[in-house]
Computed example of a mutant assay.
Amino acid sequence: MTATASNYKATFILDTRGRDESVEDLIEGLKGELAAAGAEVSAVEDLGRQDFVRTPDIKYTAGVYVQYFFSGSSDVPAAILEKLKLNKLVSHKMIQKA
């Protein structure tokens, strides 16, 4: 029995403080991590740096928002969240079925 692929939209807030790499390189690296978790990424949208309404930390007042559109089986979103759990680059994660 084969699992059918569903479409998803993942929104991540990146914490780029102290990083030497460009934002584009970080976004591409994260795209590779999604692919390693089994996602087939179809589009990436860089929403740019945006200020937070409420700051979690006085030194962390803005983040880079990125959306990834991908397809995969129903267990891919959980695998992505598990893979990114300890990743310091991604401060906030949200995956929705599209």
Rank of each mutant, 00 (worst) to 15 (best):
L81V: 08
K83V: 06
L81G: 10
A5W: 08
A36F: 00
M1C: 14
E45A: 11
D51W: 11
K31F: 01
F12M: 11
T55I: 14
Y60G: 10
L14S: 08
E21K: 12
L81E: 14
T61V: 14
L86G: 10
A78C: 07
H92D: 15
V53D: 15
T4A: 15
I27G: 02
E33Y: 00
V66P: 00
S74D: 11
E33T: 02
Y65M: 05
E82V: 12
G72M: 04
L14T: 06
R49Q: 09
E21S: 09
M1T: 10
V90A: 05
A79M: 14
E82P: 07
F70V: 07
I95K: 11
G29D: 08
E24R: 08
A62L: 06
D46S: 07
A5V: 05
A35M: 06
F69E: 14
R17H: 05
S6K: 09
D51P: 06
D15I: 04
T4F: 12
D25E: 09
D51Q: 12
E28Y: 05
N87S: 09
T55W: 14
M1K: 12
E24T: 08
Y65D: 04
T2C: 10
R49Y: 06
R19K: 13
G29L: 00
A79D: 12
K85S: 13
V64H: 08
D46G: 07
F52D: 03
R54P: 05
D75E: 13
L26T: 00
M1I: 13
R49T: 09
G48M: 07
L47K: 06
I80H: 04
L81I: 09
D15S: 09
L89H: 06
R49A: 05
L34A: 04
D25Y: 00
D51C: 06
V66W: 04
G48R: 04
K59T: 13
I95A: 11
